[in-house]
Design a binder for these strands. Structure first.
Lengths: 225, 225
DNA sequence: TCTTCGACGATCAGGATACGCATGTGCTCT
DNA sequence: AGAGCACATGCGTATCCTGATCGTCGAAGA
């Protein structure tokens, strides 16, 4: 985990840097807003500790610039000011947390832990196979980046296959997982939807294994022969 | 957005509930740890306000139980105690933010906004999708710069969709996050409000995915995945 | 190796239906 | 009184299932 500290007061800055490094973080230290902004814009950080009272450029301005550039690493704001209106301004400017000086370094560490946990906790549940990409969180399917419109049943079928990528899935297994309890098993709906999916995503995404079922393979997983 | 308040002091609890409801949140109020834990485990909340000093079960214990159950809604912890060691304990137990009593309700609102903003992956308090712009701070909505008047429910619905831009949101998910606990889930209110919003903002802002739900897409996000 | 035949899978189209949309009505809270 | 809301009803249609037909694979025999 990599942290950027933007703090103009050398004593505090170096103390923070040392403490964070002892806690296993990689730390960059910047002493003014301009330099800090440049670092935050060009390097990859997991979190930023930002002092509001900076020379040259104000901390809130730097924060606003980052957010407008699309940088969305978690930012913890430090300030000597203690009025709640300043806190509100900071939070609304895009800060994720706030800490008033003076503070215990233990609290800073704990807050950083919480911020990073939250930022990385949103692991995107994306399934891919070849050019096909399925996002289970958003319920979206794309082919070579282009969004593809699937109906509910088509989506369910594809989703199950992608969750069991590389495995041969029998038709009864598909029926059991796509439909609820009572469903007439003597019908060819599965084949129908396989056909439709193939039409939308290409014939080669789903492989037929005669007498056994279907299988969805990722070309990337096949050590070609 | 739906909030759970766990606060044993009735005066403060009801005051918070009222204030949050006036700010457009659906709010459930629980007076003790056991009940609060049950609600947080079974219902869908976008954020939780948790008082540490509770009868029956301690707030930190409740928080720990939630996290062990895999519940990861943002939690804002309230406490009368002001020592930093308690803050650290709270944050390490899985809290996302901390507020010491007494506090300004404005600050609570601002912090909740920030928590929800981060939890849904949005860096700015201004949400945009195509020509539609929604400012969570002022509660204003504009279409091509022109202000649009939305009713409370219309705003809640649109706000939730914009917080989850690009994701397919089911009708039950919408109901769970827009209304509080006691609400008859068998009605078509969601469809009605979707219709109303489309009339005011244009038919193409909200896409229907049959059998799955609704989705709000930003044309600017379409090129490439 | 080639041919043939049976079995399984793929495809197509029509009807049934569940789904979502729009409008209307009365209730509730300002 | 008015606005906003929940809820009910009727309508149009996308989606789904069904059944029939067509296509394809593979084993077995010549």
């Amino acid at each position: 985990m990599r942290i950027l500290i933007v703090e103009d007061e050398p004593t505090l800055g170096n103390q923070l840097k040392t403490t964070l490094e002892q806690n296993g973080y990689a730390v960059d230290l910047s002493a003014d807003g301009e330099d800090g902004h440049f670092l935050g814009s060009t390097e990859e950080y997991d979190a930023v500790v930002l002092d509001l009272g900076l020379p040259e450029i104000d901390g809130l301005t730097v924060l606003g610039m980052w957010r407008r550039e699309g940088r969305n690493f978690p930012v913890l704001v430090l300030t000597a000011r203690d009025s709640w209106s300043d806190k509100v301004a900071g939070l609304d400017a895009g800060a994720d947390d706030y800490l008033a000086k003076p503070f215990q370094t233990e609290e800073l560490i704990a807050r950083l832990r919480a911020l990073i946990r939250r930022a990385t906790g949103n692991a995107s549940s994306e399934l891919t196979a070849g050019d096909v990409r399925l996002d289970t969180r958003s319920g979206r399917v794309t082919l070579k980046g282009e969004p593809v419109k699937l109906t509910a049943q088509e989506y369910k079928l594809l989703s199950y296959l992608m969750h069991h990528k590389g495995k041969v899935v029998s038709r009864t297994e598909l029926i059991e997982h796509i439909y609820d309890q009572d469903f007439d098993r003597d019908s060819n709906t599965i084949e129908v939807f396989v056909t439709r999916i193939r039409k939308k995503l290409g014939a080669d995404v789903i492989t037929t294994i005669r007498g056994l079922g279907y299988s969805l393979d990722d070309p990337a997983d096949q050590p070609r022969g």
